[in-house]
Design a binder for these strands. Structure first.
Lengths: 225, 225
DNA sequence: CTGACTTTGTGCATCGGTTCACAAAGGGAT
DNA sequence: ATCCCTTTGTGAACCGATGCACAAAGTCAG
């Protein structure tokens, strides 16, 4: 338990970052089941990746394993959490309280670790004032004020496509630099602002592509011309 | 307009497939605005990628552009749609009609092109029998029957994490090979089955990672202890 | 018909990520 | 203390994706 060589490369590959939450989830499950120690092989299986990749990923954070034994679950949970910035509390605002926004507000996974839905905002006077998931829905005119007042640093866009770019610009103007976008548009943002996009219909289209291939099969007798 | 050399490589890179829906969306927008022809430069800008990448992507489908001119919008829409398998109609079943399932059922983007929500299934007797987005919610006991009867080939899992694996196995058993999973678990499936995963909390965690970095900045004075 | 101009399609260098395979490191038994 | 066994951490080969830069191919004006 001595201080393990300062390893933080300050440069963790993007692909690795994207997998850390996966490992974290698997580790949480193990911690709950009382597992104290886990090998790269087992953890990799639980996370659905291969063990070499997992080891290389973890090696980017430092040498937190013990050769011949594996990784201490609790310790690794802490290290990954810290690396991902989950040891602090992130205030999230959800803009757009339609079906999707509502689902997100109620989604347990958000609140669980590190994130807190701090504000709900919508333009429709019909829903402004309603209470959803214990929160009062505020009017879009209050957007900037709410973000500042609640210390929101991550904004989730669940608005109609047409509204997304404008909302995006407004929140950036008051200092937000992390946006999770569910609206089916390409947002244009200045450098330094991070946008991640979740697009349900794109995922379906990718599935359809593969499904079509399978249906045709290797000896596809379709309209090959 | 002569038949353009049989190009279908039968091997389109995965990264390209993932971007085709993006191009398709941009093209639809252009078609609606009456644009007849578009250059790789303009289309790339609309889709948020660089133009060399776009040209290379499209070249995998065939030579559908005209040098000195660009791409004919309508024609390209058709070619990409066909490649993605959107010229046929895909019946989709949504399992789990909680907040998220409801949002998905009502999500216009699904229905719009090529996809049709053909069934809603849930285990909760409270919601079975309800009508959501014009569809009757059926009981999970009917799962296999419904899938066969409606010709469902793509299943969307919006169940609680604990139920996902079981539902997954049941739909695979009746021949489904394409699954879009919103439950926060790693599904284990046999070869030949495609699973795509959308995980809201993972996206947030990735954002938090980058936000933390920005907050600290190059000369981070944090607990480097 | 010719020549200037535009834009595609692609060869090539590069880069980031994955996988293999093994030396190094630790634990535990004798 | 020594040896054997397990498992990590990583060097190196490999693979797919990206981006540059340009020749090839077309349009259009005169």
């Amino acid at each position: 338990m001595k201080s393990p060589s300062q390893p933080r490369d300050r440069g963790i590959p993007e692909a690795t970052v994207a997998r850390l939450p996966l490992y974290l989830r698997a580790l949480h499950g193990m911690a709950e089941r009382g597992v104290a120690t886990v090998s790269s092989e087992d953890l990799a299986a639980a996370a659905g990746v291969n063990s070499a990749k997992l080891r290389k990923d973890l090696s980017h954070l430092g040498s937190y394993g013990t050769r011949g034994v594996g990784y201490e679950v609790e310790y690794l949970v802490y290290q990954i959490s810290r690396e991902l910035g989950l040891t602090q509390d992130w205030a999230v605002a959800i803009v757009g309280v339609g079906n999707l926004g509502r689902a997100l507000a109620n989604y347990g996974g958000f609140v669980s670790r590190g994130f807190r839905v701090a504000a709900l905002v919508d333009a429709d006077p019909e829903v402004v004032g309603d209470t959803i998931a214990g929160l009062n829905v505020e009017h879009i005119d209050e957007l900037e004020a709410v973000i500042k007042r609640r210390g929101v640093s991550i904004v989730v866009l669940a608005t109609p496509a047409a509204a997304a770019q404008e909302v995006c610009e407004r929140v950036i103007a008051v200092g937000v630099t992390s946006i999770l976008n569910f609206a089916p548009v390409v947002l244009s943002v200045p450098d330094g602002v991070d946008v991640r996009k979740v697009d349900l219909s794109i995922e379906l289209q990718i599935l359809a592509f593969h499904e079509q291939r399978k249906a045709g099969g290797p000896l596809m007798a379709v309209d090959s011309q």
